[in-house]
């Protein structure tokens, strides 16, 4: 399902202009990371995708739907939105009930709910914890519950707001696997992140925002090369890219595997 954002302008009720004309197209199956400093408009932009915010002017289209004409509950059929803080949404007594809530709200058949919930628990490795209370789990696992609760909604597009913040290495690995698995099943994954390494290793396209505008947009390898432009919005190049540069590599690398390959070849 394609996303079309055209000339999107958004001003908050207090007059603050958060988006100053953003035009972005995201085709089906994309792996897109959105980066930029705090206040650059990243969250404001993605909140337009599921109708939590409505354009002041401009257009946001999800497939054939114009978000202005759809309710948030309707758009939840197409966009799964994982909030940064899992505690903003967990309320059920067990992990399983929590994960069932989304597909139930969307009015799916019981059989389908059962299959989707099982698959989501499998993917997030929550199977053994399915009958526990979400609040008895560690924050890293609560994040997984929040993820599973959105994945079970089986939306063609999944948006993650800061998926790796406060997560340990094992948990970040798990999130990487989930992103790849979603990508493998043909879904669009959009992540807002400050974790440039996570983004370089897992995503294909990178959108850099600064002060309500898109300043860079392209394949990761091209975007990470723009050191100065990234620095202007307080984003550093991936560690591995900086290391390669210091070692005098002639090519831009952004993944550890590429780094090792280039190192071998030279």
């Amino acid at each position: 399902m394609n996303i079309e954002i055209k000339e999107l302008v958004f001003a908050y009720p207090n007059g603050v202009l958060a988006l100053e004309g953003v035009t972005v197209g995201i085709p089906t199956g994309s792996l897109v990371a959105i980066v930029g400093q705090n206040g650059a408009g990243k969250t404001t932009l993605v909140k337009h995708l599921n109708g939590l915010l409505r354009p002041t002017s401009g257009l946001v289209q999800i497939g054939d739907w114009d978000t202005r004409q759809r309710s948030v509950a309707e758009l939840a059929n197409r966009i799964g939105f994982i909030f940064q803080n899992p505690d903003d949404q967990l309320f059920c007594r067990t992990v399983k009930e929590e994960v069932q809530f989304g597909p139930r709200s969307l009015g799916f058949e019981n059989d389908r709910i059962e299959t989707l919930v099982e698959a989501a628990l499998e993917l997030t490795e929550l199977h053994e914890k399915a009958s526990q209370n979400p609040y008895d789990l560690s924050p890293a696992w609560r994040k997984m519950v929040a993820l599973a609760s959105i994945l079970a909604m089986d939306t063609p597009i999944v948006v993650m707001d800061e998926p790796t913040t406060g997560q340990d290495a094992v948990s970040i690995e798990r999130i990487s696997r989930i992103v790849q698995s979603l990508h493998g099943s043909g879904k669009t994954v959009i992540a807002i992140t400050h974790d440039i390494d996570f983004c370089a290793e897992n995503f294909e396209r990178m959108i850099v925002m600064r002060q309500g505008m898109v300043v860079l947009d392209g394949p990761i390898q091209e975007v990470v090369a723009e050191r100065e432009m990234l620095a202007s919005t307080y984003v550093e190049q991936p560690q591995i890219t900086r290391l390669a540069k210091r070692l005098g590599f002639s090519t831009i690398v952004y993944k550890p595997d590429d780094f090792i390959r280039v190192l071998h070849d030279s």
């Binding site: 909140k47 509950a73 939840a76 903003d88």
Partner: peptide, 16 residues
Amino acid sequence: ARAVTIQDAQRSRGLD
């Protein structure tokens, strides 16, 4: 502010 965020999060899960 928190209540607004929670409302957003649950509406995103299809809560009407």
